[in-house]
């Protein structure tokens, strides 16, 4: 029975995708969470791990749908064109803002309604445990005197932005290289091709636990509870903090009661002990933001990113 309904929903969703605007018969019973990441990718794993807890804490049936392609452009279009009934939501990450700014997708991040934020992925600076750099100051000093080599995961990404802004703030000019994903870059930190890399804590967790990496700083407002000894970049005298968000967005014109339901549900979910253990293990920072705050946050994040991309000449 469950399989049947799931198939029907998938069909309906794909009908929406092609712009037919099919109506769901049970709008609130089954909620589809759309991600642009492939099965097994970051957002996908995040959603699939969250769903059993979401179901347990607030009830209802949730399914994940992967709408890949166009670096999130297709997923955005599918959600933006869906009926605002509260049956379809998009799992937000900074990717959808970058894709909106870098290309000309049929629906942009501004065509979606931010609902609530759930988490932040802490961004950290790190180096190989057997490197000569003990602190961020060492890396910066090396960049000042010799040839610094820093790495970021993707060419146009929040991580790249962190490195470029760090470079400006510290007044140094290291070579900044980008890779296709965090794993590729991690290898180049481990083999000392790079002095320092930046990435999500989750990506480097395996190497960190094995003692092969050293954390140099947290690129956020606060220290991480798991690593109370690692100072933030701000504490080290550089005014730089970013917040890599994970939340939900829906089509424009969502009814107020749908938004209110999420605003009530998410704090409950984040307080749940079983789920708290899971997300803490996965190095996620709870970062609940109600609707009004999230809308402002998204606008500011978008404006800041756009300014950065324009300033560096990536977009006109």
């Amino acid at each position: 029975m469950r399989v049947c309904r799931r198939t029907v929903v998938l069909w309906l969703v794909s009908a929406l995708t092609v712009g037919c605007g099919a109506a769901t018969t049970e709008p609130r019973r089954v909620v589809t969470l759309v991600t642009h990441s492939s099965p097994g990718g970051g957002s996908d794993v995040f959603l699939r791990e969250m769903i059993p807890h979401l179901t347990r804490v607030i009830g209802g049936t949730f399914i994940v749908q992967n709408i890949q392609g166009g670096s999130g452009a297709k997923a955005m279009a599918a959600v933006a064109h869906a009926r605002p009934e509260g049956a379809l939501f998009y799992a937000t990450t900074p990717t959808f803002i970058y894709t909106s700014l870098l290309s000309d997708p049929s629906a942009r991040y501004t065509d979606l309604e931010p609902v609530v934020n759930l988490f932040f992925d802490p961004e950290v600076l790190y180096t190989a445990a057997d490197s000569t750099f003990a602190t961020l100051a060492d890396v910066l000093a090396h960049a000042r005197t010799g040839r610094g080599r820093w790495g970021a995961a993707n060419p146009a990404s929040l991580e790249r932005q962190v490195m470029e802004r760090l470079k400006q703030a510290a007044g140094v000019s290291p070579a900044i290289t980008t890779f296709e994903g965090g794993g590729d870059m991690l290898i180049n930190v481990l083999n000392h091709t790079l002095d320092m890399g930046v990435g999500e804590l989750q990506e480097i967790r395996a190497q960190l636990d094995a003692g092969r990496l050293r954390l140099l700083g947290v690129v956020g407002d606060d220290r991480l509870p798991q690593f109370p000894d690692v100072p933030t970049v701000k504490e080290q005298g550089i005014d730089l903090a970013v917040r890599k968000f994970r939340g939900l967005a829906g089509p424009k014109g969502l009814p107020a009661d749908v938004i209110a339901a999420w605003e009530a549900a998410i704090p409950k979910l984040l307080d749940d002990p079983a789920y708290r253990k899971l997300y803490t293990d996965n190095s996620l920072q709870p970062g609940f933001m109600p609707h009004a705050e999230y809308v402002t946050f998204m606008r500011e994040f978008g404006a800041e990113t756009e300014a950065f991309l324009k300033q560096s000449g990536v977009i006109q």
Binding site: W11, L12, V13, S14, A15, V18, C20, A22
Partner: peptide, 9 residues
Amino acid sequence: PHPPGFWAR
């Protein structure tokens, strides 16, 4: 998810 077409409606 191949397109179901107008039948779905």
